[in-house]
């Protein structure tokens, strides 16, 4: 390395350094993600597999009609649900397991002894969730559009809603994943701790079951957690507007979605700053 670059690096502010190294970490984390066979299947392809199963097995069933009298197919109905599930899996499930494993296999201990800022590590993980989640959403949309002929929205306003629901959803879910990674006591138990949580959330939040079919008290329980709001946001983008009558209060409630996700994001940040340590000292 030349003397000039060394000098430049010396002058770099700690924040700029953390962000630059965070950017490098994203590339590293995304590469590692796709080389891990089980995450590619259980996190990346899982919603794709589920969308295929649901679309095929309920291909005879109708999920309502549009104002123009078109049938709403199972694929159409479940596409937004699986997009929301993908956001939860890419963020929360992926990071909670990944970081718990890194904690117990010595990865974090090695990083703790290096001059990597904690913030860069987080940027790398959030970036991994964002990039893999976005690719996953693209695969789901492509599958829905080409194979199952789901009509995609033409109004740019819908895509704007998709953009912010997706981004806020991934950030929120990724931060909660980092916070949740403190719970499993070992890397081996991580899957057993995390998957039941995400599975229950998916069942009560309108991913696998039609949300409007759930009893009201269960809908209210689900409304405490972020996945219900992500799924609602995705439905507002991809389902015809007539189906808004199936929502709670018969409204897509975009401000409510933004508020719920923002509250969980802040809660996740606070939890993370309280619980995240490179290593458990003196364990």
């Amino acid at each position: 390395m030349s003397a000039t670059t060394t000098a430049t690096r010396r002058r770099e502010s700690p924040l700029a350094r953390a962000v630059r190294l965070g950017g490098l970490r994203i590339g590293y984390e995304v590469r590692a993600y796709f080389r891990q066979g089980d995450t590619v299947f259980f996190t990346f392809l899982f919603p794709v597999v589920m969308l295929t199963i649901f679309s095929v097995s309920f291909s005879e069933a109708s999920f309502g009609q549009t104002a123009d009298g078109d049938e709403i197919t199972a694929a159409w109905f479940f596409l937004p649900a699986m997009l929301a599930a993908g956001v939860l899996l890419s963020g929360l499930q992926n990071l909670a397991i990944d970081i718990a494993v890194e904690k117990s296999d010595g990865t974090l201990k090695r990083l703790a002894g290096s001059p990597l800022p904690v913030m860069s590590y987080f940027i790398g993980k959030l970036g991994q969730s964002f990039v893999t989640g976005l690719l996953q959403a693209a695969v789901l949309l492509l599958l829905g559009f080409t194979v199952f002929q789901v009509p995609l929205p033409e109004d740019p306003a819908n895509w704007w809603v998709f953009a912010w629901v997706f981004t806020l959803g991934v950030l929120c879910s990724a931060i909660l994943g980092i916070a949740l990674s403190a719970v499993p006591r070992s890397g081996k138990s991580a899957t057993a701790v995390v998957i039941p949580i995400t599975l229950v959330l998916q069942f009560i939040s309108g991913v696998y079951l039609r949300f409007s079919d759930l009893p009201e008290w269960l809908q209210n329980v689900a409304a405490v957690f972020p996945l219900k709001w992500m799924a609602q946001g995705m439905r507002s983008v991809f389902l015809p507007d007539e189906l808004v009558v199936l929502e709670q209060n018969e409204s897509w409630d975009h401000p409510g979605i933004a508020l719920a996700l923002a509250i969980w994001l802040v809660a996740g940040l606070i939890l993370t700053s309280l619980t995240f340590r490179w290593i458990r000292k003196d364990s």
Binding site: Y28, R31, A32, Y33, R35, Q36, V101, E102, D105, G106, T107, K109, R110, G113, S114
Partner: peptide, 13 residues
């Protein structure tokens, strides 16, 4: 520079 006693990292890079 730290070379720890053991490493069991997943090694996906």
């Amino acid at each position: 520079g730290i070379v720890l006693q053991s490493s069991g990292e997943s090694g996906n890079v």
